[in-house]
């Protein structure tokens, strides 16, 4: 079942597979489980401990980041 809900992940419009979805479900859906990532939602950090509780809303802006080489 495809939902009509859309969010923005790392600047890209992304349709959600379900109407009601937690941040944790999105992380699993994107195959990021177990990866070291951090998530910001609409400008605020979503602590890892709250991934299961925080429900995504239409037009949410998520930044999902990791550590890469840099100086």
């Amino acid at each position: 079942m495809k939902s009509s809900m859309q969010i923005f992940v790392n600047g890209k419009a992304t349709p959600l597979p379900a109407e009601a979805m937690s941040v944790l479900a999105l992380v699993e859906h994107m195959q990021l489980t177990g990866k070291r990532i951090a998530i910001e939602r609409n400008g605020d950090i979503v602590p890892r401990s709250q991934f299961a509780e925080v429900q995504l809303q239409a037009d949410d802006k998520l930044e999902i980041v990791g550590a890469v080489g840099g100086g």
């Binding site: 600047g11 195959q31 990021l32 951090a38 999902i64 980041v65 990791g66 550590a67 890469v68 080489g69």
Partner: peptide, 14 residues
């Protein structure tokens, strides 16, 4: 050691 923080590649090379 310094590291940079960047957007994770979604859906590629999991």
């Amino acid at each position: 050691i310094t590291v940079a923080i960047r957007r994770t590649n979604i859906g590629q090379n999991a």
